[in-house]
Design a protein around this nucleic acid. Structure first.
Length: 426
RNA sequence: GGAGAGGUGGCUGAGUGGUCGAAAGCACCGCACUCGAAAUGCGGCGUGCCCUCACGGGUACCGUGGGUUCGAAUCCCACCCUCUCCGCCA
């Protein structure tokens, strides 16, 4: 959510930021809406002031038994009240329209975010690891996975497309990955383990920015709850409507949760394999901090996510997203992309964003700066550390052997109950 | 699901139609006292929005949304949440 005062005072800068996202200028239109609302609001307040004044006088008149004055004043208020309801209705409608307008505008890119319309303009910043050289043609996990327990057919019969059942050794490896990641993030990376709600209300999804614009990407229950598309929603909203002491910041949280996405608009993309599912697990990282801490927290989060890939020995690269490729709430985003040998490309496995006070404003999450009066909005950051499903794909493909087996990465061995590889079954 | 109790400022907690943005206490800030501190005394101390260059003024907010009234923290309706007991349940 944008601060209307910022738009009022810096219309040119606001429009320039929108332009970097490829959006048309809005400040003139919003400014007009704002001016109209303020004028109406002022009119309402003036009417109320007069009413309140008269009501006090009525009270005083009645106290001294002056019924005539009281009745005269009542008549005056009565006429006032014929106009007030419509003014109030108008003011409310204008305020709501303005809020709705603001709620649908994405965050502005940070100054250092590169220009560009889409992913082709993202900037590679860092590359780690070299893809294993195989003496055979790398296979697609969708092809050799089923023999290892990745069951798409049975899941399709139960739930339809974009679902999978993991069975036996495959389920074990998947669990091992999630546990390993959670252990890393709650260990030296110092994120607090959290087990949040998976079903949330409108306000929570609005707070992180998926609503009102992206309802079609979410699943909704008959009770009106939303299934979280990412634990970012639950974790970030844990501080909603709170005023935190500065001393408790930064608050670092992590959670291993299922995520649910309708994938509306993704028809035809990644239809094979485990890359794009309606349901997947992810270890999410969230940091709630002061504006001054945000840059360091962003870096720490990056290191925390990269550390998983490095520990697993998965080659990856880090991309700084250009202005046109960022998500709705982000001010600056890094994507981590993991090497997938079957496709010969790097694929997104983590997205790590700083949102400034954009989400905090929507959630009304503030802190009390020490030695300062008043409150300020916190800054929020979120990132995947990592997407477990896609990490499973990356492990399968990068550790595949010519005979269709998959070697278990060393760091996962303590989680595998003695298993050292996945063995194909016919 | 049934029955009951309750949601007031950073916290505790008064307040059942007007002068209540709201007593009191705690916490916090300033001043006094003190060599210094504690204790004590005095004063201050909510948030959003609007108007104003400013000083300042107005308005809204006592869980949320409606309603009654000249006037609502206080009365009425709906909803949300918390707690207690019963039932059910992993």
């Amino acid at each position: 959510m944008h601060d209307i005062r910022f738009i009022r005072e810096n219309p040119a800068a606001f429009d320039a930021g929108l332009a970097r996202r490829g959006l048309d200028p809005l400040s003139a239109e919003i400014g007009a809406q704002d001016a109209q609302w303020r004028a109406t609001s002022t009119a309402v307040q003036e009417s109320l002031a007069r009413r309140n004044e008269a009501s006090k006088a009525i009270g005083a008149a009645m106290a001294r038994g002056d019924a005539a004055t009281a009745d005269a004043l009542k008549a005056e208020v009565a006429t006032l009240k014929t106009r007030l309801p419509e003014l109030e209705t108008e003011e409310k409608a204008l305020a709501e329209a303005l809020q709705a307008r603001l709620a649908a505008i994405p965050n502005l890119p940070a100054p250092e975010v590169p220009e560009g319309p889409d992913e082709t303009a993202n900037v590679e910043q860092h590359k780690w690891g070299t893809p294993r050289s195989l003496n055979f043609a790398p296979q697609d996990h969708a092809d050799f996975g089923p023999a290892l327990g990745l069951d798409f057919e049975a899941a399709a019969a139960i739930s339809g497309a974009r679902f999978a059942a993991l069975r036996g050794q495959m389920a074990r490896l998947h669990r091992a990955l999630g546990q390993f990641m959670l252990d890393m993030q709650t260990g030296s990376n110092a994120y607090e383990e959290t087990n949040p709600p998976l079903l949330v209300r409108d306000e929570a999804v609005y707070g992180t920015g998926q609503l009102p614009k992206f309802a079609e990407d979410l699943f909704r229950t008959t009770t009106g709850h939303w299934l979280i598309p990412t634990a970012e929603v639950s974790l970030t909203n844990l501080v909603r409507e709170q005023i935190l002491a500065e001393a408790v910041l930064p608050i670092r949280m992590t959670a291993l949760t299922p995520c649910f996405r309708s994938e509306a608009g993704s028809a035809g993309r990644d239809t094979r394999g485990f890359i794009r599912q309606h349901q997947f697990e992810k270890v999410e990282l969230v940091s709630i901090c002061t504006p001054e801490q945000a840059a360091d927290e962003h870096e720490h989060m990056l290191q925390s996510a990269q550390g998983i890939l490095e520990a697993l020995g998965l080659p990856y690269r880090r991309m700084l997203l250009c202005a046109g490729d960022m998500g709705f709430s982000a001010a600056k985003t890094f994507d981590l992309e993991v090497w997938l040998p079957s496709q010969g490309v790097y694929r997104e496995i983590s997205s790590i964003s700083t949102c400034g006070d954009f989400q905090a404003r929507r959630m009304n999450a503030r802190f009390r700066p020490e030695g300062e009066k008043g409150t300020r909005f916190v800054h929020t950051l979120n990132g995947s550390g990592l997407a477990v499903g896609r990490t499973l794909v990356a492990v399968l493909e990068n550790y595949q052997n010519a005979d269709g087996s998959v070697t278990i990465p060393e760091v996962l061995l303590p989680y595998m109950g003695g298993m050292t590889e996945l063995t194909p079954k016919l």
